[in-house]
Amino acid sequence: MSLVVEQLLNGVQFGAMLFLLAAGLTLIFGIMGIINLAHGSLFMVGAYAAALTASKTGSFALAVPAGLGAAACAGVAVELLVMRRLYARDHLDQVLATFGLILFFNEMTVILFGRQPLFVQLPAALNVSVPVAPGVLYPVYRLLLIGLGLAVAGGLYLLINRTRLGMLVRAGATNREMVRALGVDIRLIYTAVFGLGALLAGLAGLLSGPLTSVQVGMGERILILAFVVVVIGGVGSVRGAFFGAMIVGMVDTLLRAFLPGLLRNVMAGSEADALGAGLSSMGVYFLMAAVLLARPKGLFVAHG
């Protein structure tokens, strides 16, 4: 029983992490029509900046702004130097250019920091577990992640639906030329949205540092899952990204946790483990294919 509760919470926590990445991805895609494969690189930049700051200064409190700042700066630089010239282009050109950016970011990281993975120590105050249910202890840091994910979801909802900037962003997504004709500097808004997406990717990166190792290529592994989330949720919809992230996080975590055990009831141990691992990795993609076949535009179609 306690294992089930723990894995459910793990699922929510993974979902929260995926949401941070997917929110930026879906905003950038929905509003600017850009496929940004390099989003995972911004995730990595945030993770590295935070990990290095933490190891040099020993302070997790300093690592947080360092990771956020580095990711946002990298994002704005990418937007100004490359993305800005690609808005009017085919998706294919965007794929090629952002693939080039991935190669650059990954190899630059290898040159600067080497191939050895970095490990981040949690501050003692966060490195404790608290009871969440009778007899179930859960790490406080993961609870914090869940809380942050929910807070960001709420904040983004308010930003997009309740503020002037959000109104301009929604208007820009619906009809870019009209917004421009009304005297709004749409390019500035685009840069801001891209920077915000990068900031969220950096947040996800720096938060995931203490849970997994920080290494080159960490961005691409999670990027594909974030794309799955975006497509399941409906491209351009932040609400869809939130529910998509929760579903994907939950399905992935629960399958990984319980499928090998279930298979072991019907076949030999090592084969069950291999098949279970394979099938649980397939689960998320199976889910996406099923969703797209039933609702070709995703679960929540964005209304601009």
Partner: peptide, 18 residues
């Protein structure tokens, strides 16, 4: 994305085919 999904399914299928 759906073509990617099917390719990934096959990838993981062959990974698990001992």
């Amino acid at each position: 994305m759906i073509t990617l999904a099917f390719a990934q399914m096959l990838f993981f299928l062959f990974v698990s085919l001992k």
